[in-house]
Design a binder for these strands. Structure first.
Lengths: 208, 208, 208, 208
DNA sequence: CATGAATGAGCCTTCATTCAT
DNA sequence: GATGAATGAAGGCTCATTCAT
């Protein structure tokens, strides 16, 4: 690593000859975390690879040892985010009896709201600030599928009625998104409050 | 100061590509349109100011005569978009009798869906690809207010029931957004079809 | 004239259709004064022609009506400065009896110090920040000639002794310059004090 | 992010002009020397960073690896100049017996004149063409201090008389400057001749 | 005479990526 | 594996100057 300091118009470069060798997972993790923090703080475009390696405490070459391009970190971050997100929600849902569909839906809602509140900053940056061409459909699709299944199961079991599962899933998911964004932007409400409001609206919508 | 240095004794004649003077509005309009087209086609970052002026058929200085930075076009574009959007929807709603709230809501929904379908490309680029810090809250707020009023009026007149106008407005607006995005990404559905699906869901939600 | 104000990312240009017609001298004078003030405040390079015309309250074309290039103002400013400077000093000297050489030298010294103190800012900017190739020799030469004559006359009349008029003139002029600069940079001394110190040194140097 | 866009299916091979890695000092030295030569030849403003790196034989990025801005080279150059200048003169003075004050003064004068004659071009460019705000006082102060000490020591030892050390130092230094400038601008005189003339004047001034 | 919209060459700077060590 | 010096294409922006009105 190297520190740069200015002395009379000239950047003096101070080499510190530490070269630590760590397991690959740790390196990758450090790099991704550093990137995430910086992306959140400054935005993706304003964050340079230099910033990332500096914060991660590794040399620049190391970055390119683990990632092929800067975009790769974003993709990796997105994947990690999606995985964590769905896992977390799936776990919450799974903790309910398989046949208590209303409880499962409630668990989905609470889990989703909580996960989103906890991570919306990274979510925003990683999903909105970067264009992968396909309008980010891929990742959203997974979440919608998860919710769709839940809704379909409930409908099949007579827990609620709905004629178009996908449409309902979309409205529920994006509606929930909007509510959380609104809460974040305005006076902070807790997850419970948001869930109550959404439950009422969605409950009627599903004819629960 | 850039003194006109004789480049090796060779005087470079500049073909004066007949400089045309146009009203400011036209110039600004041309520039904004050129920018919009390019932003949609290549993304904001990939579009250079050079691209824009070339497409608009003006010199680069002209761009900076009307805009202070590249970002400024985006802001201007966003404002124009929001203005046009709300105007269009407001007009559709206004064409319904003031006391026919269901018709007014239907008009709002159809108007919004149509306007969004017609312009989602610019919308995406201008609202998602660029970070103005305040999470774009301002512009969305205007739209939400418009819808909120409509909903409140209907509720007051007994056309429907709802306990939290803002929550409903958010879910409706973002739900509609999601549906249109989905339609755009997948097999294209026409506006009518989307409206029907949404009407059903929102109708139940509002206890119409 | 035109004012520019920002409204939503777009520079709105407000035309004020006043077109005043003034005598050429006034125009040129306004322009030169505006330029001088700005050069002093921001430096020559940082001052744009736009700045100048804005402060002078005229259109940009007007500038190029009276000056061929931006450099021309500097040259004009320098000429005006030199003329004023020598005139002022000459006048002070002329107020002494033609045969009282010591008084004439004292008058020259006091006049020069005063003139320089009063205008050093413009002097600095106009004589040091701009390279006319010949190391500004021309203008200094006039001043040196003026002083040289005075010294030679005094020597011829036996008021003092000196073997090399030009060398003495240079040392006296640049020495005086240095003293005034020093006074300006440090705690402010009045002209009298500076003159006393210089008189002592120069008096000995000339074997007065 | 500047994604490596395929330019119409054509992959641009970059001839890797064998990138050589050199010690930082060498690189910085090359860059500074190149800059100095160009500044002297064309003036600071007319010299572009491109010019500098081209002459130094490095990539443009290398420049910004070592300097933060173009101005930084000027500052660095100025510091190097001042350091070298004072060192050189100090060395000349130190070669005289500590108690032979007249010899020391003579050595100072000759050393200063020689050093200035040898480097006046860079001096001019770097000290006059660039405004660091504080009127370059800092660097001159060092030189004046050096001379002031010498003068004070001589006065204390009775080698000469002077009532105001600083005033004398200023007049001597700036007088010497003026003489050398004059010699440079007119017919070239050698250092010895200049020193002789100055010695006579200064000798009388100090009542040696 | 006066104006200011229009121009474009050219500058400084950034930063993702490479590769010699 | 790890490093960071080196690179250079590319972009945003400035500003002196012109000229149609």
């Amino acid at each position: 690593m190297a520190t740069r300091e200015k002395t009379g118009g000239l950047i003096r470069i101070r080499r510190s000859r530490t070269r630590r060798i760590l397991p690959a997972e740790v390196r990758v993790g450090d790099l991704m975390s550093a990137a995430a923090e910086l992306f959140i703080a400054k935005g993706i475009e304003a964050t340079t690879v230099n910033d990332i390696v500096e914060r991660a405490g590794v040399g620049k070459g190391t970055f390119y040892h683990y990632f092929e391009t800067k975009e790769d970190v974003i993709v990796a971050l997105r994947e990690r985010f999606s995985r964590d997100f769905t896992d977390q929600v799936a776990q919450a849902v799974a903790s309910c009896p398989a046949d208590d569909h209303r409880a499962r839906f409630a668990a989905w809602l609470r889990g989703t709201v909580q996960a989103y509140i906890a991570n919306y900053k990274l979510h925003d940056v990683v999903f909105h600030e970067f264009r992968p061409g396909n309008r980010n459909v891929k990742d959203k699709e997974i979440v919608l599928a998860q919710l769709g299944e839940l809704l379909a199961a409930g409908a099949a079991a007579g827990a609620w009625k709905l004629s178009d599962t996908r449409a309902a899933a979309i409205v529920i998911f994006d509606g929930m998104h909007g509510m959380v964004d609104d809460a974040i932007a305005g006076e902070p409400r807790d997850a419970e409050q948001i869930c109550r409001r959404l439950s009422e609206l969605f409950g009627r919508m599903l004819l629960i």
